[in-house]
Design a protein around this nucleic acid. Structure first.
Length: 112
DNA sequence: CCCTTGACTATCT
DNA sequence: GAGATAGCCAAGG
């Protein structure tokens, strides 16, 4: 199988389903992990039709901002779900609870 | 075909 | 670091 057809390659769902709580992945990363480099937009299309069970909210842009319009209902829903998992926000960017954080962040934490 | 549309990205100002 | 720009690629009109 080498292309996204009407149904998306289940590998995409699989990758998303395996993102650990408190962590996030970018569209492009997911595409690569599923074996489709450069297919970030397809992942985006896949997410818009994602099954109910999928942790869609753990998918963010490569720059770590959320893909929805700032302040929109969808944006607020996603940010809330992420916060429930202990994720922090540095401005509009997601800051995951990565064990290997910089000394700076260890000492001062992310901005509020 | 040609053009537009996206829950996108890397790169350059 | 925030905008703008140019790639990207399947779908649908």
């Amino acid at each position: 199988m080498n292309h996204f057809q009407q149904k998306f390659d289940p590998r995409v769902w699989e990758v998303v389903a395996n993102i650990p709580p408190g962590q996030v992945m970018a569209y492009g990363e997911i595409a690569r992990a599923a074996g489709y480099p450069r297919y970030s937009r397809m992942v985006s299309a896949a997410m818009s039709r994602s099954p109910e069970y999928l942790p869609w909210f753990r998918v963010v842009r490569s720059d770590r901002t959320l893909a929805f319009e700032y302040g929109s209902p969808a944006y607020r829903e996603q940010s809330q779900l992420l916060k429930l998992e202990g994720v922090r926000f540095d401005g509009n960017k997601v800051v995951t609870v990565d064990p290997v954080t910089s000394l700076d962040k260890m000492l001062w934490g992310p901005r509020d």
